[in-house]
Nucleic acid binder design. Structure first.
Lengths: 142, 142
DNA sequence: CATATTGTAATGTTTGACATTACAACAATG
DNA sequence: CATTGTTGTAATGTCAAACATTACAATATG
């Protein structure tokens, strides 16, 4: 009943690549050490971010690199890239009774409102760019 | 990674009580038949809604009754009453490395934005009253 | 009191997320 | 061109949370 940690892991991953990309070879092991998860989890994350055109990953030699302007990547893009929510955010009970007037119409009555609520959340994510996060990160450094 | 179906079950439950309250004794079995879940699930739901002051349930003799103006109950109130989300909506990876400048600051950078997104969703739920849902339900009846 | 129903504890079942192991494909370097 | 370090990904394991179900005591009403 929560949104997957894949999302925060992916944001973390992008921030690590951005922060260390100039001075280090940013491998899945390197990122995994900062996020504190298994490197394979990071490889899967990298794979999603790559498919979304945000980064480039060198198989074999290793290392990830950002290839899209961070100003143009929003939290929503990352959220979508790693598939944070599969289908609707709300879990609807499966089989309302068609024999009951309420059961028969509950979807018609509720679905739209639930979709609106989900959209409101997602629109909020669209407001935040990765670039602004890197600025906030800078501001927090000692 | 989804919000509990307790929420949609609770909304469904209130609509059933409202729709049939005048003509039938609305027991947990009756509601369970419309929602299509085990009656115990409904009893737990009724328990939460009662604790929130929305309904009254008669132990022993049976039957639930709405005791709060539906105009003044929003989807958000129901969502809160049944505890649809425990803690934050987003699942954060547990142990970012304090040794890494990104790991050390990722919470400071992200937490606020995630809270804002969740709040946007919840504010949307606050806009919808149960009374308006009963009107939509009426409109959908044959 | 007999009956129907609620309240709730205890337990079982299932699903999904996340972790981990394993290894083939691959790219750079000496 | 063999070695080394890394990615890509499949297969499998582990665990927690949601939901279902059983069981029964407590309760109200005719």
């Amino acid at each position: 009943m929560k949104i997957t940690s894949r999302f925060t892991v992916a944001v973390h991953t992008l921030l690590v690549i951005h922060t260390f990309g100039k001075t280090e070879k940013v491998t899945s092991d390197f990122i995994a050490a900062s996020v504190n998860v298994n490197p394979v989890v990071i490889r899967r994350t990298l794979s999603s971010l790559k498919a979304a055109g945000m980064i480039d990953v060198k198989a074999g030699s290793g290392g990830a690199r950002i290839v899209k302007d961070l100003e143009s990547i929003t939290l929503y893009d990352v959220y979508k890239a790693v598939d944070s929510v599969d289908g609707g955010l709300f879990h609807f009970h499966e089989n309302p009774s068609p024999a009951c007037p309420v059961g028969r119409n509950i979807h018609a009555v509720l679905d739209g409102h639930l979709a609106d609520a989900q959209a409101a959340m997602e629109n909020e994510l669209k407001k935040i760019s990765l670039a602004s996060l890197t600025r906030e990160l800078q501001a927090n450094l000692p």
